[in-house]
Write a protein that binds this DNA or RNA. Structure first.
Length: 605
DNA sequence: ATAGGGTTAG
């Protein structure tokens, strides 16, 4: 590129530079790629693109605009990058979810003889969190300890945060580190409280809340969230009233808590009362109604949000589709999908995944496949979602075809993929194929067998009538069988009338879930079938002593934006006489055309 | 450091 001459007089030059600095700082505040590109051209014109002030800022700017190619280009033009520039590139990679690239840059900088500073470590720790790798965090912890970087409080604070994101062993490490910290600021306390809340250690979190010298609004919001997540809404409300000031997050946290508790009345009262709402608040209340199956309210709220001019973001869209998938609100899902298409919203991969999942879970597999096939960039989750969806609705063959296609396209299947694959085999009755996949998942694909996979296999063998093999597999499992394993085994025994085996399995279930009346009622019907009336009365006695009654499983159907739920022998619907008339007619018709219902079902019902 | 967020056996 032709170099443009630099203004001659120093004062002008200085003011031009000042102006550019100001403009660049401004454009970093509001992320606008067009503006940034124009500015980049001007900076280039003045040959400032390798300047120690401008280069790191450009890297950050491009990274904020998700333009990593441009960011790396800026970096590569600098002959001798300094630490500032390295740090900005590391941060750029972390921000754009490329943690391994971040570590490569980190190694490269050490290779060049540059020593990382606290900022570098803080940013790298963020990359570790994305990976949830305890080992990486520990590596950095020892590194930092040796270099004496503890003096900067940002470092131990980020370490605590990262430890919490690494599972149970991380929680202990975080506690230990917090205990030995000589100096703590409000962020250290808040990070600790937040981590404990996420680890379901609410009492300990509250103890720290009481102990700490001063609290800010973040502290209050965090503890509020802890109580609302634990379902303790009275305690949360008390804190909400007591706190010195409230912001959108405080109100939204409370609304979310009431939604999760199913108290839409309180949620709506707070929603109406709060001073300013943002997209997150709207998402929470819409999902609250959607998860309760109240599609009409959810849709009208969605329309109200659109009317206020608030733009739904990825988070809104993914959440609402998720809620639709959960409660089978195809109507709301379609409405949201149409609205997205109308506005020309550019769907990211996660958004497309949510749409595929929604259509699949609602049973509209053709639409799910259309969206899936139309995706520009599919990731592992996309494949898992479509395979799972097809498997769930009995299209096992199609699911397995897609599995082969995903392997052909070079995707490495993970634990979730194999749950879908095994589930597909079960629903299509491919018992031997299932056994094959169960074997090769470890040997060929290096995916460890977990309890979920054993669960699928026991279901597969059990439904296929191979009870002996199912029992053998339970015995050979390297982990303790859980409720789900015993549950599917008892289901298989029921299906194939193996009463003695069912009794044995039920005793295991009762040991694990002594409060569940369902197990005793099943046990009593088994005794009844065998004519053992002593057994029946003892099972009945035990059932009474449990007290708690589990809600029975319900089916649902969506009619005119309203989800109707019904259970076995349900008579609650106002038109239930008419409904049963139709059902009786249908079963009469089925019998006439030669359908014989399974006799075994009678023994247990 | 705080509110909503994609795939997970019966």
């Amino acid at each position: 590129m032709q170099q443009i001459s630099i203004p001659i007089r120093a004062p002008t030059w200085v003011s031009t530079r000042r102006l550019l600095e100001q403009k660049l700082a401004d454009s970093l505040k509001c992320i606008d790629l067009k503006q940034l590109k124009q500015l980049h051209a001007v900076i280039y014109k003045y040959n400032l693109q390798t300047d120690p002030y401008f280069a790191p800022k450009l890297v950050s700017g491009f990274s904020l605009c998700r333009q990593m190619v441009l960011a790396v280009n800026v970096f590569n033009q600098v002959q001798e990058p300094n630490m500032h520039l390295y740090n900005s590139l590391i941060r750029a990679h972390v921000y754009n979810s490329q943690p391994s690239q971040a570590f490569w840059v980190f190694f490269d900088m050490q290779h060049r003889g540059l020593w990382p500073d606290t900022f570098t470590y803080a940013v790298l720790l963020k990359a570790c969190c994305g990976n949830y790798s305890l080992k990486l965090v520990q590596m950095i912890h020892t590194h930092v300890e040796k270099l004496g970087f503890y003096s900067d409080i940002v470092v131990p604070n980020s370490l605590i945060d990262c430890y919490f994101k690494c599972g149970l062993s991380g929680v202990c490490a975080a506690r230990k580190l917090f205990a030995v910290m000589g100096e703590r600021d409000i962020v250290s306390w808040n990070t600790m409280i937040c981590g404990l809340v996420k680890a379901n250690e609410l009492r300990e979190a509250h103890r720290l809340f009481d102990e700490m010298p001063e609290r800010d609004i973040v502290t209050w919001n965090t503890i509020l969230d802890g109580y609302s997540k634990a379902g303790e809404m009275e305690a949360a409300f008390e804190l909400f009233q007591k706190m010195p000031e409230r912001n959108v997050v405080s109100w939204s946290t409370m609304i979310c808590g009431y939604c999760k508790a199913g108290d839409m009345e309180m949620a709506m009262i707070l929603f109406d009362k709060m001073p300013a709402k943002n997209v997150v608040t709207w998402t929470i209340i819409i999902c609250g109604y959607a998860e309760k199956g109240l599609a009409k309210d959810a849709i009208s709220l969605f329309e109200k949000m659109e009317a206020t001019g608030l733009e739904p973001d990825d988070g809104t869209i993914i959440s609402i589709f998720g809620a639709c998938a959960e409660s089978g609100l195809l109507g709301l899902g379609k409405r949201l999908h149409a609205s997205i298409q109308r506005t020309g919203y550019k769907c990211s991969t996660p958004v497309c995944n949510a749409i595929v999942d929604m259509y699949a879970k609602c049973g509209n597999l053709n639409r799910a496949l259309t969206v899936f096939n139309g995706m520009a960039n599919r990731d592992l989750v996309s494949w898992n979602a479509i395979i799972q969806g097809l498997a769930m609705h009995g299209r096992g063959e199609k699911a397995l075809n897609l599995f082969s296609r995903m392997i052909q396209e070079g995707f490495a299947p993970d634990r979730v993929t194999f749950i879908g694959v095994l589930c597909a085999c079960t629903h299509a009755g491919f018992v031997d194929k299932g056994i094959h996949y169960f074997h090769v998942m470890e040997t060929e694909y290096g995916v460890l067998k977990e309890i979920e996979h054993y669960g699928c296999m026991i279901d597969l063998l059990g439904r296929g009538g191979r009870l002996t093999e199912a029992f053998k597999l339970v015995q050979s499992m390297p982990m303790e069988p859980n409720v789900i394993i015993w549950g599917s085994l008892v289901g298989a025994c029921r299906m194939h009338n193996a009463l003695e085996d069912a009794k044995e399995v039920l005793h295991h279930l009762i040991k694990l879930e002594p409060a569940d009346a369902g197990h005793f009622s099943m046990l009593s019907s088994i005794y009844a079938a065998a004519g053992d009336w002593n057994g029946v009365s003892s099972a009945r006695m035990q059932m009474k002593s449990t007290g708690t009654q589990k809600p029975s499983g319900a089916s649902s159907i969506e009619l005119e934006d309203q989800v109707h739920e019904f259970t076995v022998l349900d008579k609650s619907h106002p038109n239930s006489d008419r409904i049963y008339e139709v059902i009786d007619g249908l079963s009469l018709h089925l019998k006439r055309v030669g359908y014989v219902p399974k006799e075994t079902a009678k023994v247990f019902s």
